[in-house]
Computed example of a mutant assay.
Amino acid sequence: DIDGLGKKVVDQLVNEGLIKSFADIFLLEKDTLADLDRMAQKSAANLVASVEKSKKVSLRRFLYALGIDHTGENAAKLISEKFSTLKDIMETSEDVLQQINGIGPETAQSVSDFFSNRENMAIIKDVINCGVEISNDQPVIAESNNNPFNNKRVVLTGTLQTMPRSKAKKQLEKLGAAISSSISSKTHFLIAGQKPGSKFVKAQKFGIEIMDETRLTALFNQYL
């Protein structure tokens, strides 16, 4: 996912012997690229700039970019929500991966097999040595058998006094909650601040559990 690095350019770089592995992309230099057919100085400079920009990548995008069998964008997102770093993923077992909600046995085995392969690990090491920085932009879901929000649909309404609503949403996501903007029969919890409005009435109608800010804060302190 690098601007200017389409299939034709990649084929040209491979044919010229400039890239032999994934890591070689991050070692490309402007002067070398400018000598290629149909690659002017400006195009070469733009491509090098795009490569440099791509060195800062999220964990989920890096995991997806590895091209692991049965591991699409959604699977990469689900896995990155459970692990803080790439190292954590590489060291985990197939059984642990399969316990992630939404990750099936084929994906778990493919990920485990990929990171058990020495050649794959060598490529990843080379990429990191080229200056690629991998950070996790996903909220890592906290593990707890008694966490009441895990895999639950939550709606927030009203004004919270102790934290911005955006922070409350992030904390809930860390606990595995799915945040929704509207009340329905599928909603599990309504977090009600001051002046909750019509959502409060609708939640009562559906028999949805309503939680005030005091209890929400106590649960955050308990599980996070």
Results as ranks from 00 to 15, higher is better:
2 I>F: 12
3 D>G: 09
5 L>K: 04
7 K>N: 11
8 K>R: 13
10 V>P: 03
10 V>Q: 02
11 D>C: 12
12 Q>Y: 06
16 E>R: 14
16 E>C: 12
20 K>M: 11
20 K>H: 14
23 A>F: 12
26 F>L: 02
28 L>N: 05
42 K>D: 10
46 N>G: 08
59 L>N: 01
60 R>Y: 11
60 R>F: 10
66 L>V: 04
68 I>A: 00
70 H>T: 08
77 K>G: 05
85 T>N: 01
86 L>H: 05
87 K>P: 02
88 D>R: 06
88 D>Y: 00
92 T>Y: 01
93 S>P: 04
97 L>A: 04
113 D>Y: 08
115 F>M: 07
116 S>P: 09
119 E>A: 14
122 A>W: 09
124 I>F: 08
124 I>V: 14
126 D>G: 11
127 V>W: 03
129 N>D: 15
137 D>G: 12
148 P>W: 04
150 N>M: 11
151 N>T: 13
151 N>H: 15
152 K>F: 08
153 R>I: 15
158 G>M: 07
160 L>E: 05
162 T>L: 12
163 M>V: 09
171 Q>K: 15
172 L>K: 02
179 I>H: 03
179 I>W: 04
180 S>N: 12
183 I>R: 01
184 S>M: 07
185 S>D: 11
188 H>D: 02
191 I>Y: 06
192 A>W: 10
196 P>K: 03
198 S>L: 09
199 K>H: 13
208 I>D: 00
208 I>E: 01
211 M>I: 07
218 A>P: 08
221 N>W: 09
